[in-house]
């Protein structure tokens, strides 16, 4: 094993990753098209946080740090953590290292819900509610379809997820077709490509609440998730109530993915490649994998968003960046891991 040393020191590594994530969050406050001096950033932060001072629009550093960057950085970090946790959990539960959160129809459902809300002209909370609702509907439909096929195996679920996902994607296309190209289409397209540009504290609250419940829930269940990766009969013998636990775990995953999609649109690849990287670092055992994966996801998405908002003079949709970086990385991982002989049931 090439990464054996890191496997053995997984705990230390996880803490280092968290420290890196915190450091990157602080650094990101200073990044952006509008140049700000470190002292200015500190002044703004201390001023606002310690004395609860409001600001006016004419205090430009204040607006940039407190209103534009801080909520965005918080949101990106939490979304990255959530997506990577969701991905690592799904790969465990579906016993397939090549799946991501979009295999069970959640992402597509959530996207469709969000786009419908935009078409109906609803406000941000409406978009969040619709995305979450449709994400759940997507998952439930996939489950019902898998049951109708008379199979409860995870393969059947993944296949139904693909069917439901494609179905929803078609409606997504139709929704774009109906959209007013003057006012709605640019917004929809931009949202579908993923963007954290519209971060607000309200959205941060939504994502943070979801992550607190589902993310920490998954981290607490970290060791149990190992059992799902065993043969179904085998796993059933080892622990009690695995079936009920499976539902809870999947509900957590939906909550994480839907909350992310509803605030920032489609951001692909994070849930797929980050668990792989984390597995190379700390090994496949989920009580080590989940925390490392989550923090690594935060680091990755924050890096991508920093690039998205400061690389060019115009915002680059982050979904494009994660795809451009993610697909080749995944191709390499796929090629490397295939030679290691993962066994699929």
């Amino acid at each position: 094993m090439r990464f054996h040393w890191t496997h053995k020191h997984a705990g230390l590594l996880t803490l280092i990753l968290f420290a890196l994530l915190l450091a990157e969050m602080v650094l990101s406050l200073g990044l952006g098209r509008f140049r700000l001096h470190t002292t200015e950033i500190l002044r703004v932060l201390l001023h606002t946080r310690l004395w609860h001072a409001g600001g006016t629009f004419y205090d430009v550093p204040w607006v940039v740090v407190e209103i534009i960057r801080l909520p965005r950085i918080l949101m990106v970090t939490l979304c990255g953590v959530g997506l990577a946790l969701a991905g690592a959990t799904m790969q465990g539960v579906f016993r397939n290292p090549l799946v991501g959160p979009d295999v069970v129809g959640v992402s597509q459902g959530a996207s469709l819900g969000g786009v419908l809300a935009i078409l109906l002209g609803w406000q941000p909370m409406g978009i969040v509610a619709m995305a979450f609702g449709f994400g759940l509907v997507g998952l439930l439909l996939a489950f019902v379809l898998a049951r109708l096929a008379g199979r409860t195996s995870t393969l059947a679920l993944v296949l139904s997820g693909i069917i439901i996902g494609s179905f929803f994607s078609s409606f997504l296309g139709l929704a774009q077709y109906y959209a007013d190209p003057q006012t709605q289409l640019p917004g929809i397209t931009y949202w579908l490509l993923g963007s954290f540009a519209s971060a607000t504290y309200q959205k941060v609250t939504i994502v943070a609440a979801a992550t607190l419940l589902a993310g920490c829930g998954l981290l607490l269940l970290r060791w149990r998730i190992n059992l799902f990766s065993l043969n179904e009969t085998d796993a059933a013998m080892l622990g009690t109530n695995l079936e009920r636990l499976r539902w809870i775990v999947i509900a957590f995953v939906v909550l994480l993915v839907a909350s992310q999609v509803s605030v920032s649109g489609g951001v692909g690849w994070v849930g797929l490649i980050i668990p792989h990287l984390a597995r190379m670092l700390v090994g496949p055992e989920h009580s080590k994998l989940l925390p490392a994966s989550g923090f690594l996801g935060g680091i990755y998405l924050l890096t991508m968003d920093d690039l998205a908002r400061s690389m060019a003079s115009q915002e680059i949709p982050i979904g494009l960046l994660t795809g451009i970086v993610g697909a080749p990385v995944f191709a390499i991982l796929f090629w490397k891991t295939q030679s290691k002989g993962w066994i699929h049931d």
Binding site: N96, P97, L227, S229, D234, G239, E285, I343, D345
Partner: peptide
């Protein structure tokens, strides 16, 4: 007996302690 991940033997045995 097939597993999808590179669990170590120790990990496998520990799963027996699930209850």
């Amino acid at each position: 007996f097939q597993v999808s991940f590179d669990y170590t033997s120790l990990d496998m045995v520990l799963m027996g302690r699930a209850r």
